[in-house]
Amino acid sequence: MLELRLVQGSLLKKVLESVKDLVNDANFDCSATGFSLQAMDSSHVALVALLLRSEGFEHYRCDRNLSMGMNLNNMAKMLKCAGNDDIVTIKADDGGDTVTFMFESPTQDKIADFEMKLMDIDSEHLGIPEAEFQAIVRMPSAEFARICKDLSSIGDTVVISVTKEGVKFSTRGDIGTANIVCRQNTTVDKPEDATVIEMQEPVSLTFALRYMNSFTKATPLSNQVTISLSSELPVVVEYKVAEMGYIRFYLAPKLEE
């Protein structure tokens, strides 16, 4: 038996909106630690890892580890029916073939339940090693989204370079080139407006902008995004999910042949 009650139901709505276009079907894993998901896009270029820790739920009951295969588009359709202020409860029986999403309005005057069919998904779970990154950039998530959107109107790939000057996002296309440099800036009124660059050594990697743009659909989840880079490793683009966890997108680089 599984019963997870999330007062801030809008978080789950936002999570689904940020992954549904990247991944079609995925297994949600439920354990004492929390509600999690790891899945790759169909071409295995990007991987998403979500964790919502059990402590972040108002009520968290998970009698035994459960893996629930869901079509993320269908799940997003159901969660769209929840109001932004609604409390969302996820319920499932061990061995059952459905999951129920219950939506309660804050004043308890409207209660809805949506039952969705589960599916069997063969998914491979990948071990993600703890990495030492050459550079970690923390910046406003809206700024990062703007940069990815702007650059994708010029080119298909972005070169992200971190030096002591700052972080540079560059692209080139048929019509020309573009370079955007963001410098460290910690003298801001609000901490969420800061740009912080921790560099162990300079690093420069190339990525497909199409995927970066897809990751920025998680922007409503967090004011800040963290971009972690190491030579010839997938970049990690992380958005915190309130105080309860994170959504991390891994993107494999384009490498010189």
Binding site: H44, V45, L47, L233, P234, L255, E256
Partner: peptide
């Protein structure tokens, strides 16, 4: 030219 790598070439199955 550059070639798109895949996640599975960096992370292995567990």
């Amino acid at each position: 030219g550059s070639k798109q790598s895949t996640i599975t070439s960096f992370f292995s199955k567990v």
